[in-house]
Simulated assay, not measured.
Amino acid sequence: MKITIVAGARPNFMKIAPIIHAIEKKEGITYRLVHTGQHYNKNLSETFFTELNIPKPAVNLEVKSGSQATQTAAIMVAFEKDLEENKTDLVLVVGDVTSTMACAIVAKKAHVKVAHVEAGIRSGDLTMPEEINRMVTDSITDYFFTTSVSANKNLLKAGTPENRIFFVGNVMIDTLKKNLPLIKRPNFWDILHLKEKQFYVLTLHRPSNVDAKKDFSKLLQKIMDESDDTPVIFPVHPRTQNILNEANLNFENLHFVEPQGYLSFIYLIKNAKAVLTDSGGITEEASVLNIPCITFRNSTERPETCELGTNRLVGTDFKKIDRAFKDLKANNWNTYTEIPKWDGHTATRIVEIIANGYEQ
C-alpha cells in the first residue's frame, strides 16, 4: 500500500512524525511525504525535520503565503500535478490548516481515498478559517481518526457512518512523550535570566486577536498589566510580527523572540509558570505537562483540555482575564487528569487500522 502524507504548517510536523515512524516499522506500507510549503520560516518547518527525525519530504510545493483563496488555490494546483505524477492508494491529511483542506479536495476529485487525522473536532466558531477547513475536510473524508469522544459525537451528529470513525487518540501527545527527554533550553534562556516557573509563555496569532491593531494593543496591555514584573516570552508568529511592527509596543518584561524549534518550545512550556495563548494545539501540550493555560478564545475545538486538562477560556473579556490571573497567582487551578488514549501510542493504532484495510 502506498500512502501520501501531507504536511504544510508547524502543527502538522508534530502530527506526522509519529505516523511516519510507525509506518517505517510496518511491512507492506510505503509512504511519500509532501510538504506544501505553507509555512516557510525555517523555524516553522525545516527545523522540525531534524528535531523530530523526519526524512526530508519527497517534494516541497513551496506555495508560501497569500490570502486564504490565493493560498488554497496554489496548494490545489501544485498538489494536483504532484498527485498525477505520483500515484497513491491513500492521501493522509492531518489537523486543520489550509493544506489539509486543499489537498483533501484534490485527492477526492482524483478518486483517491482520504484519511483525516484529528477529524471531528469543532469549535463552533465559523469566523475561524480552521473551522471551515475542518468542516470541508470531514465532509469528503473516507476514514476519520479522532482524538476524543466529543469528536466522535460531532461526526455521528453530522451523519458520518460509525464504521468509518476510529477513536485512536492524539498524535501530538505521541510526539510530546517521545521527545520530552530531548528538550533543550533556548539560546536566550541565560541572556534573559529566566528561571523555572517564573515566566509566562505567550503566543497570539489568530486574526480575531491580532488583526485589529487597536484591539490587539489593548489585549497585550491587559496581559502585561496582569503579569506584574514576571517575564513574558513571546515567540512571534510571522503574521503577528507584521502587526507588532506597526503597533510600537514597549514593555520592559515583554520579550519578543524568534519562532522556536519544537524541542526548545516544549522546554519553555514545561518550565513556564503558565501558558497564555490562542492556539488549540498548545493547550493540549500544556494540559499533558500540567501547566496552567489561559486561552484568549471564546470557544475551543478541544473541550477535553478544559474538562480534564489545565485550560481555561477567557476570550478577550477583561473580567474573565482578571479572574484567571487571580486564580493563577493563588495556585487555584485545575490539574491534569488522564485524557483517554492520549498515551503515546496513537500513531501505532492508526497504522494498524490502515494496514488492516480500515475495518473496525
Rank of each mutant, 00 (worst) to 15 (best):
E131A: 06
I121E: 11
A107W: 08
T72N: 09
N163C: 02
I75D: 04
L180W: 01
T70R: 09
K87Y: 09
T100G: 06
P161A: 14
K56R: 14
A151N: 07
D89R: 04
I105H: 00
I105S: 02
A73K: 07
L92Q: 06
P57R: 10
E118G: 04
P181N: 09
V94K: 01
S150A: 15
V171H: 00
T127K: 13
V77T: 13
A115Q: 03
V77S: 04
V114K: 03
E85N: 12
S123Q: 07
Q68P: 06
V149A: 11
E80M: 08
D82E: 15
T88K: 13
V77D: 07
K87G: 06
A58C: 05
T88V: 11
N179P: 00
G124L: 03
L83N: 07
I132E: 00
N154M: 09
L176C: 06
A73N: 14
D125S: 14
K81T: 11
T70G: 15
S67F: 02
T147R: 08
I173N: 10
A102K: 12
N170E: 13
E162N: 13
V114M: 08
K64I: 07
K56D: 13
A107R: 02
D142N: 14
P181T: 07
K153Y: 05
I54P: 04
M172G: 11
S65K: 12
A73Y: 06
D125K: 03
E118H: 02
I132F: 03
N179A: 01
I105G: 00
V168I: 11
F79W: 06
K64V: 09
E80N: 14
A73V: 14
N170I: 01
V91P: 00
E131G: 05
G66A: 09
T127R: 13
A115G: 14
D174P: 01
L126E: 06
N152I: 15
M101L: 15
S150F: 13
M76I: 11
